[in-house]
């Protein structure tokens, strides 16, 4: 399958008064056309920073992107048949504005603060259409109402002139999705879009995004901390820890044959549904390292039950342990299991 996005060795740092925060130290992954990539990790692991770095959404200063490449192979190039990739990190302000919100849509976690409270829902969707597609106000209105209907908001015509506070959490998230898909993007990046929602509404939103993905032939990057959500919708999963990608694998490999001790521990820390009797959860002792002074060895070493001498000396590079399954660990845990 053709690649649509290829990120290589992305390094982002924050220059603060307390020192340099090493938010991302060399993250690499790629995204295929039409696939859903799940990104999981704990808070502070760099999931959101990765995506925000790509789209220039981080305030600079304090943030600075210090290295890496993010090649975007756009194949819906209207002007010419140019299929040369664009390096998102090298684009200037006007260059990224054409892509952000146009070819790459973004869904934020907190729909209430992502939407402008003093602007009607309709105007916020129209704005994108006018800006990127050059529609007139009337065209944009007509299209906005269609979009609202498309994402499942009842009485769309009436809701067009409503304000965000008049919407429920689920409806606000649907509005965000309408804005994100307005320009028929090639990639949708969803940053914890269901974390603030109740499970029943979460199920609705996941269903919606999966339907849209199929109908509009998009690729989806879904950032979450919930491994359960990832299991249900992702094709491949990237696990992040302390600013680096520790494992990337097809979803089944990751869940049934994890290759990094962090992933193994994380899966053990989840309660099993419907089990008989009470058992103890496997917990990961300790907390993630301080990114102000990240260790020069494996980030996970001091929480890792298998840490050996070499883990304290060097940072392990990602290795391919089976086709498409990469883990950043010196040892091969996946192969040890039958």
């Amino acid at each position: 399958m053709a690649k649509i996005l290829e990120v290589n060795d992305l390094i982002t740092r924050f220059y603060t008064f307390d020192g340099v925060v090493h938010a991302l130290s060399g993250v690499s992954f790629d995204l295929d056309e039409g696939e859903t990539l799940g990104i999981v990790g704990e808070s502070g692991s760099g999931k959101s920073v990765t995506m925000m770095s790509l789209l220039h959404l981080l305030p600079t200063p304090p943030a600075r992107i210090e290295g890496g490449k993010a090649l975007f192979y756009s194949n819906r190039n209207e002007q010419n048949n140019n299929t040369d990739p664009v390096d998102l990190l090298q684009l200037d302000k006007s260059g990224i504005r054409k892509i952000r919100g146009g070819k790459i849509g973004f869904i934020f976690q907190d729909a209430l603060s992502a939407l402008n409270p003093v602007m009607t829902i309709g105007r916020q969707i129209s704005e994108t259409l006018i800006e990127h597609l050059g529609m007139t106000v009337d065209e944009a209105k007509k299209r906005s109402i269609e979009l609202l209907e498309y994402v499942g908001i009842p009485e769309a015509e009436k809701r067009f002139s409503a304000y965000p506070h008049q919407f429920s959490g689920g409806m606000r998230q649907r509005t965000m999705i309408a804005v994100a898909i307005a320009c028929n993007p090639e990639i949708i990046i969803a940053d914890e879009p269901t974390t603030a929602l109740d499970v029943t509404v979460q199920a609705q939103i996941i269903e919606l995004v999966q339907r849209l993905k199929k109908e509009m032939k998009m690729s989806v990057i879904w950032i979450t901390h919930d491994l359960g959500v990832v299991a249900g919708m992702a094709d491949r999963v990237l696990v992040m820890y302390a600013g680096s990608a520790v494992e990337i694998a097809p979803v089944d490999d990751l869940f049934y044959n994890p290759g990094h001790p962090y992933t193994i521990k994380l899966l053990g820390a989840l309660p099993k549904i419907g089990e008989e009797g009470q058992h103890r959860l496997e917990s990961i002792d300790g907390t993630p390292p301080d990114l102000l002074s990240p260790p020069a060895h494996c980030q996970f070493a001091w929480r890792c039950p298998h840490a050996a001498e070499k883990c304290w000396q060097a940072v392990p590079a990602a290795r391919e342990i089976s086709p498409g399954h990469h883990a950043a660990c010196f040892f091969d845990f996946a192969a040890r299991r039958p």
Binding site: D198, L227, G228, D252, F255, I273
Partner: peptide
């Protein structure tokens, strides 16, 4: 409906399950 909406960290089980989607909101 609530039980069927819990995400299960198990891809095979997730693919097999039938979700009861509740429409509307509380």
């Amino acid at each position: 409906a609530l039980m069927s909406a819990i995400p299960i960290p198990d891809p095979v089980k997730e693919r097999q399950r039938q979700r009861i989607l509740l429409n509307e909101e509380v």
